[in-house]
Measured scan of single mutants.
Amino acid sequence: FHVTIHVGDITFHIHGVSEEEVKKLEELVRRGADWREIKKTIEEIEK
């Protein structure tokens, strides 16, 4: 999957994300995680 996440003024683009990881990111966004937490999760996914 290709994912784009907008957190305030920050936009993250992630490529090659599995469905499971998409759900993890959706959950973070849904519970209102700040951009640092989302960035950390994205960095883990990209490894």
Rank of each mutant, 00 (worst) to 15 (best):
I42H: 01
E43K: 10
H6L: 09
I10W: 15
G16H: 13
E20A: 13
G32Q: 06
E26T: 14
E37N: 02
E26Q: 10
S18W: 04
H2E: 14
K23C: 06
W35I: 15
V3N: 02
R31N: 12
G32S: 05
E37S: 03
F12A: 02
H15Q: 07
K47W: 05
V22A: 13
L25Y: 01
W35H: 10
V3H: 05
E26V: 10
E27S: 11
K40N: 11
H15V: 10
H2R: 04
L25R: 00
E46K: 09
R30W: 04
G32D: 06
R36E: 15
D34A: 03
I45D: 01
R31E: 09
E43V: 10
G16D: 12
G16P: 04
S18M: 08
H6R: 13
V7F: 12
G8H: 03
I38H: 01
V17N: 04
G32T: 04
L25A: 00
A33K: 03
E43A: 11
E20Y: 09
I38T: 01
G16K: 02
E46A: 13
I45V: 06
K24C: 05
E19I: 11
V29N: 02
E43H: 10
E26N: 10
E27I: 08
L28A: 07
K24S: 08
G8R: 02
T11V: 12
R36T: 14
E27W: 04
F12I: 13
V29D: 01
E21V: 14
T11C: 06
I14A: 05
S18K: 13
I10T: 09
E21C: 08
I45C: 05
W35R: 06
D9Q: 07
I38C: 02
H13S: 03
E19S: 09
K24T: 12
E20K: 08
F12P: 00
V17I: 13
I10D: 11
I45G: 03
T11M: 06
G32F: 04
V29L: 13
T11K: 05
E26A: 10
V17D: 04
G8S: 03
V29F: 09
R30L: 10
E37P: 01
E20W: 08
K39R: 10
H6G: 03
E44K: 10
E46D: 11
I42T: 02
D9I: 04
D9T: 09
I42V: 10
D9P: 11
K40T: 13
V17R: 02
I5C: 02
R30I: 12
S18D: 07
I14Y: 05
E26P: 00
I10M: 13
E46P: 06
G8Q: 06
L28E: 03
T41F: 15
R36Q: 15
R31D: 08
R31T: 10
E44V: 09
A33G: 06
H6P: 02
I38E: 00
K24A: 11
H13K: 02
D34E: 05
A33Y: 00
V3E: 02
E37A: 02
E43S: 08
E43T: 09
V29H: 04
H15L: 06
K24Q: 14
H15C: 06
S18G: 09
I38M: 03
T4P: 01
T11I: 11
V29T: 06
L25F: 07
I5T: 00
W35F: 11
K40E: 15
R36C: 11
R30A: 14
I42M: 07
E46F: 14
V29G: 03
H2I: 15
E37T: 08
K39I: 12
K23H: 12
K40I: 10
H6D: 04
K40L: 11
T41H: 12
H2P: 12
K47Q: 12
F12M: 07
V22T: 06
H13F: 05
I45Q: 04
S18I: 05
V22R: 10
D9C: 09
E43N: 09
I42R: 01
E37W: 01
G16R: 03
I45H: 04
W35Y: 12
E27H: 07
E26W: 06
E19A: 13
I5F: 02
V17L: 14
L25E: 00
T4H: 07
H6Y: 04
R31W: 05
H13W: 03
K24V: 14
E43D: 13
I45W: 14
V29I: 12
A33I: 05
E21H: 14
K39T: 12
E20I: 14
D34I: 01
I42K: 01
E43L: 13
T4E: 09
E26I: 13
E27M: 09
I45P: 01
H15R: 06
V7W: 12
T41N: 08
K47N: 10
R30N: 14
I38P: 00
I38N: 00
R31L: 12
V7M: 10
G16A: 11
H13N: 04
G32M: 06
I38W: 02
R36N: 14
I42F: 05
K23W: 07
T41S: 09
F12Y: 14
E44G: 13
